[in-house]
């Protein structure tokens, strides 16, 4: 819990968001395009083993942005592939990301039950 961890989380997390903001402002891509691209980029970096290095340096600065979702998918698939070969790519895919997706579905559903859109 040192302050350096927090500073790195702030700097790296902020920097990733700036990249997205610049793409949004300079091009006509929508947030949907940019987020999809970030997930793909996170996946590729994960496959090369680089994303984990970033996580070690930046902590939540690397795990909170959506690119970590791509990384987690790839890591799940690769870890299970080590044990079960090609089939493992299918079975391990969501091993590490189930928290995020489950949480999003559950909280999304509950919020929709409780609240109404403001307009």
């Amino acid at each position: 819990m040192e302050w350096q961890t927090y500073m790195m989380a702030f700097l790296v997390g902020g920097a990733i968001c700036v990249v997205a903001q610049l793409i949004l402002d300079f091009t006509n891509f929508t947030p949907g395009h940019v987020l999809s691209a970030f997930v793909v980029a996170g996946g590729i970096l994960g496959g090369l083993g680089l994303y984990d290095k970033l996580v070690q340096i930046a902590g939540a600065g690397a795990t909170m942005p959506i690119s970590s979702f791509g990384n987690a998918l790839v890591k799940g698939a690769m870890a299970e592939a080590e044990r079960n070969g090609v089939i493992g790519v299918l079975t391990g895919m969501f091993e590490l990301t189930s928290t995020g997706i489950t949480a999003a579905i559950i909280f999304g559903f509950l919020t929709a039950l409780v609240f109404n859109p403001e307009g």
Partner: peptide, 8 residues
Amino acid sequence: FPTEYGAH
């Protein structure tokens, strides 16, 4: 987009 979506 949906109205509550935080699109810039």
